[in-house]
Structures are given as structure tokens and as C-alpha cells.
Amino acid sequence: MAELWKSLPSWVRNIVVPVLVLVLAWNIVTFVFGVVGALLAMLVKLLVVVGIAAAVVILVKKAAKS
């Protein structure tokens, strides 16, 4: 690996490789934020559905008593 790195021209080592590393890091960060955001969105939707279901159950029980 060291031979391959030393065989690269200096402009590749100093410009191209850091740019590729930054692009890869940016893609990984956006992927992580996307996954976390999707999980949070699903959690919020689940909480809304559970809240609506609880309200329906309470209303049905009140309606059954009267």
C-alpha cells in the first residue's frame, strides 16, 4: 500500500484523495442523518397512531356507558 501511495503524483495525493475522502465522509454523514431522521419520523407517526387509538378507545367506553 505504501508503494502505491508513493507512486501517485503529488497533485493526486494532495488534492484528489482529500476531496474523495471529504465526499465519502459527507455521504456517510448524510446517510446517518437520513436513517436517524427516518427512524424519528416513524416514531412520531407511531405515537400519533397510538394516541388516536387511545382517544377512540376512551370515546367508545364513554359512549357505551351512556
Rank of each mutant, 00 (worst) to 15 (best):
N27D: 00
G37W: 01
K61D: 03
V21F: 09
L47A: 14
A25F: 12
V56N: 15
V44P: 00
K6H: 12
L59C: 07
V23G: 04
L8C: 14
T30P: 00
F33V: 12
F33K: 13
K61G: 00
V48R: 10
A2M: 09
V60I: 15
A2R: 13
A25L: 15
F33S: 08
V56R: 15
L59I: 04
K61S: 00
A41S: 11
V49Y: 09
A2V: 13
V29N: 08
N27H: 01
V56P: 01
V60Y: 14
W11K: 08
W11H: 11
A2Q: 13
A64W: 11
I52N: 08
A25E: 05
V57M: 07
L22N: 08
V12K: 02
W26Q: 01
L43M: 06
L22P: 01
V17R: 03
V56A: 13
N14V: 04
K61Y: 03
L39T: 04
A53H: 02
N27L: 10
L24H: 06
W5V: 12
L59K: 09
T30E: 14
W26H: 02
S10G: 01
I15A: 09
P18D: 08
L8H: 12
M1L: 15
I28D: 04
G37C: 05
I58S: 02
S66K: 11
K65Q: 11
V35H: 05
K45L: 09
L39N: 09
L22E: 07
E3Y: 07
K62N: 14
